[in-house]
Design a protein around this nucleic acid. Structure first.
Ligand SMILES: [Mn+2]
Ligand SMILES: [Mn+2]
Ligand SMILES: [Zn+2]
Ligand SMILES: [Zn+2]
Lengths: 141, 141
DNA sequence: ACTCAATCTGAGATTGAGTCTCAATTAAAA
DNA sequence: TTTTAATTGAGACTCAATCTCAGATTGAGT
């Protein structure tokens, strides 16, 4: 039993929800994928694996995974929301190339610290944040 | 003639576009409003002022104002895109209260500097950025 | 194992912000 | 004034996301 399965099960149990075969399959596919993906890509991926899980169920389960803190949703500039799994990966933010769509991840502890200071100064209790920089990657200058 | 009118006119002229009465009315309404607003709120506001300008024209003109660098679009967590005017206001980012929806603006030069350093390190040429922190304001803890 | 209330799923309908179409209108250059 | 291109508005359209609801599944209690 993987770490993420245990966490998801616990999250579901706490809310009287069930760890169904569909939710299990989606969880596994999400944690097998080490990329940013959107909901319909996940539907597609599951179908390719022979798992016939409906769009509605995938959307609903991704929401549960976000609520449970197992994955993170973000807008990377396009219309569709994309997801990535969180557990076992440390926090990072994104550079988004408007030329080729490339996503570069970065992590800067000092920026995070200063963000916290801003929140302290303004009496704000931050739960999440999103820092995105849009521009041109080295291939697209 | 206001500063923003001159800038918008110049932008339009450069692209062989026209400074129509509709575009003028939208520009004025946008710069009269010192709040974050979304496109349909702007349609509504103009209608209240007796200006019958179509939804399509408002959407199209807001896009032009963004392209011209007069206003800025952002996602503050809700479904709809919101706008604010830029000219005469210095850059800032946002704290977004998930309790009451309150938006707090802040500006931190050191964070901005460090963002630049991240881009330099990764050979990325940033054109814009968006830093949002979601959480609870002092009234909603 | 059986019952039963609660949860879950899937197919398809619905929503809604944003975009597009196109015919009629308007701007402005010649 | 003529001519050409841009503009507008009404409403159709798109499409990610959400909702509906009937039938299926789960699991606690017996
Ligand atoms: Mn990432
Ligand atoms: Mn603002
Ligand atoms: Zn690129
Ligand atoms: Zn609040």
């Amino acid at each position: 039993m993987t770490n993420e399965s245990l966490i998801f099960k616990k999250f579901l149990a706490r809310r009287d929800l069930r760890f169904t075969p569909e939710r299990k399959a989606i969880l596994e596919a999400v944690f097998d994928t080490h990329r940013h993906f959107d909901a319909d890509e996940m539907v597609e991926l599951l179908h390719k694996q022979g798992k016939k899980i409906s769009r509605a169920t995938v959307y609903r389960t991704l929401d549960l995974l976000v609520k449970g803190g197992l994955i993170r949703a973000m807008e990377l500039g396009e219309a569709r929301k994309v997801y990535e799994h969180i557990i076992g990966h440390k926090h990072h933010d994104h550079l988004i190339c408007t030329g080729c769509g490339r996503i570069i991840e970065f992590d800067d502890g000092l920026i995070e610290l200063l963000q916290q200071k801003v929140c302290d100064r303004l009496n704000f209790q931050a739960e999440t944040h999103s820092l995105r920089m849009f521009g041109r990657c080295e291939n697209c200058r």
